[in-house]
Structure formats: C-alpha cells, structure tokens
Design a protein around this nucleic acid. Structure first.
Length: 491
RNA sequence: GUCCCCUUCGUCUAGAGGCCUAGGACACUGGGUUUUCAUCCCAGUAACAGGGGUUCGACUCCCCUAGGGGACGCCA
C-alpha cells in the first residue's frame, strides 16, 4: 500500500503555526516513505471560511517549502480537494448510513438540545444527545424531510460497552460508548460536519496514515463507527502533541503569536521555523538539533515522536534562526534578505514616508520600527504620556480588546475600533494615542499609527501591545479582573 | 463534573531493566578569544512528580495518588 498523508486546515483566520507543525510531520512522513502529500481544505463551516484565508494558507505553506503533490490549486486524481465542492460524496455516503440505521434524522430544536444539555450538566453527566429522534419511524422521518421540515442527520451510537481504537504512538485506547455523542453528521444547511467529511475524504483520497493533533483522540470512536458503517478499513492514526503556551495550555493567540506570518515578518528563515517545529516532539537519532528539512526527511521515524505537549520557546527559535542565518554564504544571505525586505513590502511603505523624507538616508530612521523590532520598553518609556503605568496598562489592555474583533486588519477599521474605544472611555482619541505610539512604535513621534498597525499585521501588533503591558509592570490577576469589569462597563 | 491523554533540569529533549555518578541543546552564571558588541571556545548551576508493587536490579514494567492538558458544538 502506498503512503499518502494529508494536512487539512480549515480556512478561517490567519494560518496557524499548528497547521505548519502538522503539515511538516505529514510531509516528512510521506517523503520519507516515498509517498504523496495532499492538501485538503476543510471549508464546511460556511460562516467562517474565506477565500482570503485559503489563499493565505497556500502562501504560508509555500513559504515554508512544504509543497503538496495534490491540492485544490494543483489538482490530482482524488479531487476536488475542497470539501465544499465534494457535497455529493457526503450526501451519497450518508444515505447508505441512513438506510442501514447507522445514522438517523433528527428534528430537535436548538432550545430542546440546550435544555437537555443543561440538565445533564447539572446532573454531573457528560452532555450528550439523548436519542430523542431515534424513536421516530424512518418512513415518517423521510416524509417530514420531504415536506421540508428542518432537520439534521445524526450518527447512531451504541448505548453500552467500550470502543477500542488504535493510536500509533499510544497503543490501544478504550473509550466507553457512553461518552460518545450522537454527533451531527449533516447540518441543517446540508453541509457535512468535520466528522463525516474527514472519514469520507480520507478514505476516498486513499489516505494511509493520519497524523493530526491530540485534540482528536476523543473523536476516534465516532470515526471508527463511520469506517465500520461504510465497511472501510481505518487508516493508521497518530496523534501528535499539542503545542503549548508557557502555562502549558494549548498554544493560543491570546497568549502567544501563533500566525505563521508573524514569524515570516519578523525575519525568521523558514528553514529555521521548520527546524524548530521539528524539535517539538521529535528528535534526530543522533540528537543533532540543527538540521535541514531534507535531513529531517532522511531520518524521520514516527516512533521517535514523543507525546508530551511541548512549550513553544521563542528563545530557542531565535538561536536556531541565528544558526541557519550564519550558515548562509554572504551572497545567499544577501539574497535571502532581499527576499524578506521585498520590493512589494518596501513599496507599501513609501506612501507613509514620502512626505517626511528629503534624502534616502532619512528612510531607515522612519521605518525602523516597522521593518525592524520596536525598541525595548520599560516604565520610563511611557513618561512622556504623563500617565501613570496603571493607566497606560488600562489603555493598552482595552485597545487589545477593541481590536480583537476587527476582521479586516486595515487602517480604517482600526481607526474606527480605537476611536469608538476612546469615546467609550470618555477620552479624546488624541489623549489615548501617545500611549499607543510608545507601545507600537517605541517613541512618541512616528509614522501614522493606524497605518503602521495595519502594516505590521495582527499578530505583530498584538505582540507589541502585550510586551508593552509587560514592560509597564504587567497585569496581576486582581488587576485583570478589574480590567475585565471596567471593559464590560464601558459598553 | 465525566471521559481520554500526559508527567526526566526553568524550556526542548536523550534514555526502549543493569552502559545513569541520568547525556545533549536553549536560557542562565563564570572564564577565555575579540578595539566595542555579537559570534566562537571552555567551565558551572540545574531534573527522573509522590507512594506502592514486579525484579537480583528500575528513569525505564504494573497499580494508586497528585499535578498538567485535551474533549464533551448544527467549529474544525
């Protein structure tokens, strides 16, 4: 059997380092075994998926050099590779499940579902569908569906016993069926959920080995039921550990920069990021730590993956980046630098600096905090704002919250979000700005701030606000509560 | 709360019963090279969560406890 692996990101938001991590291991595994690596887009969530995000995923993976043999943009024998374009496959297969009684129509209202869930939670049980619509006669159900009644399709789950599943890294895992929910397979909008789509697609695309995040372990029984229901063999599954924040919770953008683009913009070499990610849970047989993607592939052995959730450590990434950078020949170094400080990026800065420039030598001084890192900050850095650290922290905390929901990270949207924040705080925008200038640019006079924030991008901006707050003494648990309340009272 | 997974230096890890006085890397500390800084080199601090077994022998196997994480959505 030939080896085929896949990475299956969902195109919502900015491409995540977790996606790069999964892509890397699936890529290395496929290459090591002379197999094929597939990119599949899981865009079954109509509300959140976007074409822009999909494009950003392609771009990010290309930058990393993790090229796929089959995918939505390059095609392949198992296409289409976008789940939204594979709907007949799902409806056709779920029909078989319906006929054999392994899936059933459900007409329950969300209100009823919420009520049931609440009761179960109060009774200390695992929230789970109570099987209400299981008792609806199949013919009656069909009639109701035909009459246009809103419905979903659910997976029928055994009431007793335990399910055994195999994880390549952990061995046999047993989960009581009682714990497994009668998962929705097809939503009211006719789109499949992840669980249906992933099983159908992995089979139809002949995926032989699934390397995915640990968060999916508890879904294996549902998938097992589907594979059995279809009469298919289950691919070998390996659940890789989740990348962690320093507090060991799952790596999240609230606590860490998680965008691939963040690392790209800060000038990390893609090979360094890949090298670092490879070290998260995997090691070379000879314990070498600095290596290339080719060397990783050459030595890749899934059994050398450890299952402990590794904390993402930016300092070690920095060191690795230095190792790769210094290994470059001067002309390559220059070429790579050129690539990073691309003509397009530079050109996008010109409108901001032109009015302020008389000689080219003025330029570096203007864009230093954009192309480069912002100067390191401490409490004194904010002296010019004439605000005590506590107030600066409050402003920055609230700015962080205010820009969080901004979808299109553009100047006008940022301007609007922060203006309304100022109004809500009973401040003039210009009273709020000095603090923000220090946090973002590191000085009180700099290029237009909203343009700068837009240019920096979401992660970099968020990171600067966060590090500025830390420089101001940080936020204690008590203060966090106070800020949370103050924020809520604002609106 | 229920279920599942995990537990070696601060962090990433090596370790598949005796090779372990537990090795390496980052970070940190000290020293050296260097006009500065950085690089580089050398040295140092620092860990098997706890308790029971199994065994002649446990970091390695089993059980319990504790801690951490994850899942419990018509999100993936």
């Amino acid at each position: 059997m030939s080896v085929r692996t896949r990475v299956a990101p969902s195109p919502t938001g900015d491409p995540h380092v977790g996606t790069a991590y999964m892509a890397l291991f699936n890529y290395a595994f496929a290459r090591r075994h002379g197999g094929r690596f597939v990119l599949r887009i899981e865009d079954t969530d109509r509300a959140r998926s976007s074409a822009a995000s999909e494009e950003a995923i392609f771009e990010a993976l290309h930058w990393l050099g993790l090229d796929w043999d089959e995918g939505p943009d390059v095609g392949g024998p198992s296409g289409p590779y976008r789940q939204s374009e594979r709907r007949e496959a799902y409806t056709q297969h779920v029909e078989a499940l319906l006929e054999s009684g392994k899936a059933f129509y459900c007409f329950c209202s969300r209100e009823r579902l919420d009520a049931v869930r609440r009761e179960q939670q109060e009774a200390g049980q695992t929230p789970r569908y109570d099987g209400h619509c299981l008792s609806v006669d199949p013919d009656e159900a069909r009639a109701r569906v035909a009459a246009g009644e809103e419905h979903v399709i659910r997976l029928a789950v055994p009431g007793e016993g335990t399910c055994q599943v195999e994880d390549g890294l952990r061995g046999t895992i047993e989960i009581p069926w009682q714990q497994v929910d009668m998962q929705v397979l097809v939503k009211a909008d006719g789109f499949p959920t992840y669980h249906l789509a992933v099983v159908v697609d992995d089979h139809l695309m002949a995926i032989s080995h699934v390397l995915r995040g640990e968060e999916w372990i508890n879904s294996m029984p549902k998938h097992r039921l589907l594979y059995d229901g279809f009469g298919w063999d289950m691919p070998q599954h390996y659940h890789l550990p989740l990348l962690r924040n320093p507090d060991r919770s799952k790596l999240s953008k609230r606590k860490n920069p998680t965008g691939i683009d963040y690392y790209r913009r800060r000038g990390y070499l893609p090979e360094a990021l890949l090298n670092y990610l490879a070290l998260m849970g995997w090691s070379m047989p000879d314990e070498r730590e600095v290596f290339s993607l080719a060397e990783m592939i050459e030595n890749f052995d899934i059994d050398r993956v450890s299952v402990r959730g590794p904390v993402f450590d930016p300092e070690k990434l920095d060191w690795l980046s230095g190792q790769h950078l210094r290994a470059l020949e001067p002309q390559d170094f220059a070429a790579r630098f050129n690539e990073w400080a691309s003509a397009d990026r530079l050109a996008s800065l010109i409108p901001l600096v032109r009015e302020r420039t008389e000689r080219f030598s003025d330029l570096a001084g203007h864009v230093d905090f954009l192309m480069g890192d912002r100067a390191p900050l401490d409490t004194d850095s904010f002296a010019s704002t004439k605000r005590p650290p506590e107030e600066c922290r409050r402003i920055l905390d609230h700015v962080l919250r205010a820009v969080e929901p901004v979808e299109s990270w553009q100047r006008d949207a940022l301007h609007e979000a922060i203006s309304s924040l100022a109004t809500a705080m009973s401040l003039k925008l210009r009273d709020l700005m000095p603090t923000l200038f220090i946090a973002i640019a590191g000085r009180s006079r700099a290029l237009p701030l909203f343009d700068s924030m837009a240019w920096l991008g979401r992660d970099l901006t968020r990171d600067r606000l966060r590090t500025a707050i830390a420089a101001l003494g940080g936020i204690s648990k008590k203060e966090a509560k106070r800020l949370e309340r103050a924020w809520r009272d604002l609106w």
